[in-house]
Each structure stands twice: as structure tokens, then as C-alpha cells.
């Protein structure tokens, strides 16, 4: 699909729909567009997580950013497939991994080496609404390998209400995406410490967490 056409579609229809009708608000989202290359790390509750994170990008940043997904969920219907891969720029890794016998880590590493930015959900799958499940340790390894690229923590709140796992009914709800400051990790730390650091930097953005 023509990228200019896609961007026009995004700016005129998709973005207003997300913000005005569905009710997703983003705080500090400009940060992302100021970065040369980045890794967004966010918690995952709904398909709208990816849509929200992508909708805040400018066109040039948008074209070189890929949300990462396994093929399982998105491959269900033609519509979902079209929306995710063509509109939202989602990169599926399962196929490449099985055909070329590469590990997930190698594929992502390769993308970053090419100068692409990626969006990661370290929980792996959409968890229960409002809960943060265990992070996969691959995130820490990847960040350690690419210590020069800043990671941006994003806390997504209330997305699970809009389209929970297993539901097909999209309902308007107020949801907020809190963007944190870009950070570089200390590659001397071990994986567990890094995972904890990443998790805390996401949690620290939750306003109900910082001022109980």
C-alpha cells in the first residue's frame, strides 16, 4: 500500500476515530517523534495498544517503525490481517523464524541493525485488563545487545476495556497512554536486574501508582 495514502487515511480517519470517538488520550507522545531510532516497551492488554502507539507517530517515523507480533492472533480474518500488516505496519516473526530457523532475538536484532524502530510487548500476549504479567527475558537481552538505542517505556491504561481478549465488540472507553522519557540501559547489569528496571520504568508512569 502506498505510504502517503496510508498516512492520509491515518490522519483523516483513523486518528480522529481513535481520539474523538474511542477516547484514547496520549500524554507526552511527542517524545517518540524526536528520536532517531527507538524501542518502545509497553504493557499489553488489547489490540488497541498497537493502534494507539502507531497513531502518535509522524509519517517518516511511522514508515520505519514495526510493532512485533506472532502470527497466531492476527492471522484469523482477512480484515484483521489487512489492518495489522498494511495499516499498522506490524511485523510477523513466526514465519521467518520457522523458515529461516532464526531465533526471535536474531530477527529483531537484524531489524534494529537496518535502522528500523520496533514496538515490543514484553508480556508476550495480551494479559488480563489492568494486570501486568511476567516479562519475557528476551527483552533484556535485546536491549543489552543494542545499548546505544534508547528505549521508551509506555504505560497503557484502560485499553483492555475497549476490546478485551476474546471479545469482538469495540466500545468507546476513556483510555490513556503515558509516554516516559527515553532511557539507555547499563549493559553491565545482568538480565534480571534489567528486566526489573524496565518493568519499574513502565510502572512508574502510572499516576495511581506514584500517588496512591
Amino acid at each position: 500500500m502506498n505510504t502517503t495514502l496510508r498516512h492520509i487515511l491515518f490522519v483523516l480517519i483513523f486518528r480522529p476515530w481513535l481520539r474523538q470517538i474511542i477516547g484514547i488520550k496520549s500524554i507526552n507522545a511527542d517524545i517518540v517523534n524526536r528520536q532517531e531510532q527507538f524501542i518502545i516497551v509497553a504493557n499489553h492488554n488489547s489490540h488497541f495498544d498497537t493502534a494507539t502507539l502507531m497513531s502518535n507517530l509522524n509519517q517518516d517515523v511511522f514508515d520505519k517503525t514495526h510493532p512485533i507480533a506472532e502470527i497466531d492472533y492476527f492471522n484469523q480474518t482477512k480484515l484483521l490481517q489487512f489492518v495489522s500488516s498494511k495499516l499498522l505496519n506490524v511485523k510477523y516473526i513466526t514465519k521467518t523464524r520457522l523458515e529461516k530457523k532464526l531465533s526471535t532475538l536474531d530477527i529483531l536484532d537484524d531489524l534494529l541493525k537496518k535502522g528500523k524502530s520496533i514496538i515490543l510487548f514484553p508480556e508476550g500476549t495480551r494479559g488480563k485488563p489492568g494486570e501486568l504479567s511476567e516479562f519475557k527475558s528476551g527483552v533484556a537481552v535485546l536491549l543489552k545487545k543494542n545499548a546505544k538505542i534508547p528505549f521508551i517505556p509506555v504505560f497503557l491504561s484502560g485499553m483492555g476495556n475497549i476490546l478485551p481478549k476474546g471479545s469482538r465488540l469495540i466500545l468507546p472507553y476513556n483510555a490513556i497512554a503515558f509516554y516516559g522519557q527515553p532511557k539507555r540501559i547499563n549493559s553491565k547489569k545482568n538480565n534480571d536486574e534489567l528486566l526489573k528496571e524496565i518493568k519499574e520504568s513502565i510502572f512508574a508512569l502510572d499516576p495511581s501508582f506514584t500517588n496512591p
Partner: peptide, 9 residues
């Protein structure tokens, strides 16, 4: 609509 959405949230 906005008010209803806020209340439902």
C-alpha cells in the same frame, strides 16, 4: 456522548 463515556469508564 463524552459524558456517558466518562461515566462508563
Amino acid at each position: 456522548f463524552l459524558a456517558f463515556r466518562e461515566l462508563i469508564t
